[in-house]
Design a protein around this nucleic acid. Structure first.
Lengths: 121, 121
DNA sequence: AATATACCTTACCAAAAAGTAGGCTGGAGA
DNA sequence: TCTCCAGCCTACTTTTTGGTAAGGTATATT
């Protein structure tokens, strides 16, 4: 049992899960892993189905927890770019293994993601 | 967009998340990764806070999805052991990276999990 | 005979997470 | 001037998830 920030965790994996759990965070992180840096709208269109509420909420939490960084490109027209921080990059194997596991699962189910992915856009 | 089993996924990571998402599944998997094979009660005591409902539900789903395997040791007194399947083992880097990420996060917050872990039992 | 332990299941309820819908600023382009 | 897009935020509602409590079988232990 680990106590931290008024919460109790059963093990280190549980601690990590506290930061990247939920429906959207790992998706955001792995997209930033794939594409390096992206602005708000680009992330939004990469994650079909995300609502703006969810996206800005999750981005804010990821930023607060130092998994991603936001660079403000301009203020007058407010423009930003998001990218993985060193902490976020340390989880790269997670994004990669989960991605290839998913791809091979799809392959076993007759879906060749690598070949078909342009069809899904 | 990927369509599979009446659901829509945004990418392969999302597909994988469909199998290991939620509060308990990754914890169960990483415990089985650490300890090789365990019976129901051992898993239960390794996951403080899990209810029997959640545990048997999640074990059942993980088994259905072929991430773990159950060996029935005896029927008359019903005794079983759970272990990772090949599919479950393919995610090992996920368990390991998430665990070491958690440990280093704790270290940065003044908790030396490796040193202190016997204290928490 | 009573209790304890392993291994579950089910019905019901509460909390957390996520979705909907709207609104707001400040350019840029027609 | 009107509309569009980037980049958000907030109130409200719904869905999903997880928790509680109880029940149930079979065997071993005291």
């Amino acid at each position: 049992m680990i106590q931290l920030h008024d919460k109790v965790y059963t093990c280190p994996v549980d601690v990590t899960l506290g930061f990247i759990g939920g429906k959207w965070k790992l998706l955001i992180l792995s997209h930033l892993h794939q594409f390096e840096r992206k602005n708000y709208s680009q992330i939004k269109s990469n994650l079909p189905g995300v609502s703006e509420k969810m996206l800005s909420q999750q981005l804010k939490e990821l930023e607060r927890d130092k998994l991603i960084e936001k660079e403000v490109l301009s203020l007058k027209p407010y423009r930003v770019e998001y990218m993985l921080s060193a902490y976020g990059k340390a989880l790269s194997p997670v994004y990669e293994v989960m991605s290839s596991w998913g791809i091979s699962y799809l392959k076993h189910n007759g879906i060749d993601y690598m070949k078909d992915q342009e069809l899904y856009k």
